[in-house]
């Protein structure tokens, strides 16, 4: 597993320098609402998981990987783990950027990073949907799906929140869901989100293994 993760880092090691720049830009641009860290952590897997997949497809490296004594399920698991590995690397780069900025006392306000359970939930749902499609059709055929999902998520969530705020909600299901969460403590909600994230991710992984086991190269 370590070697598989390592190859995804090594093939794009230069990209981590751009990652630093990205973290700095997000931190500065979203300093007013403290969203820079969250965005960096969410955007990192989008960039790095997809770049790793694109190199794999460009080199047709799956021919080699599948021919090695490795179970296909391990190759699938590596992709699922790499999402959170790159999210963690995003967090580390972000902390370094903000830390250095504080250290040299730049006269600019940078937002700090808070890892919200909703972020982990978001990553699990996002890649839980995308990865089975990727394992079925490969990177090239699914990159537009991913592009649409990514921007759909940002504009969709923002749109939904403003719509709910503006018009309220007439949906009984949604109302009862909001009440359900409002009546619980933050810790309970956090735990529920993490458990749901794990369940969704595990289910998605099982679907991907099934798909990848029958894939031909």
């Amino acid at each position: 597993m370590y070697s598989l993760l390592l190859k995804d880092i090594l093939v794009q090691k230069k990209q981590f320098l751009y990652g630093i720049l990205l973290a700095a830009v997000y931190s500065f641009a979203f300093s007013s609402n403290n969203l820079g860290g969250v965005l960096t952590v969410f955007v990192f897997p989008y960039i790095f998981v997809l770049t790793a997949a694109s190199y794999e497809e460009k080199n047709k490296a799956e021919m080699i990987l599948i021919s090695l004594p490795i179970k296909r399920s391990l190759l699938v698991m590596e992709r699922y783990i790499s999402v959170f590995l790159f999210a963690a690397l995003g967090a580390i780069e972000y902390i370094i950027v903000v830390g250095v900025a504080n250290l040299v006392e730049l006269p600019i306000k940078f937002s700090t990073l808070t890892i919200e359970p909703v972020l982990i939930f978001g990553l699990a749902v996002y890649y839980g949907i995308y990865l089975p499609l990727y394992f079925k059709f490969g990177y090239i055929k699914t990159r537009w799906v991913n592009f649409v999902m990514f921007f759909g998520l940002f504009f969709g969530v923002a749109g939904l929140i403003s719509a709910i705020n503006k018009y309220g909600t007439n949906s009984q299901v949604l109302n009862s869901l909001i009440t359900f969460f409002k009546n619980q403590s933050n810790t309970v909600v956090a735990n529920e989100l993490i458990i749901m994230a794990l369940l969704i991710y595990a289910l998605s992984y099982m679907i991907s293994v099934k798909i990848y086991n029958s894939r031909e190269f």
Partner: peptide, 14 residues
Amino acid sequence: YFYEELTVLEMKEI
């Protein structure tokens, strides 16, 4: 079909 972006040694290690 190797990762052409890697060096000989890096690919070997993996």
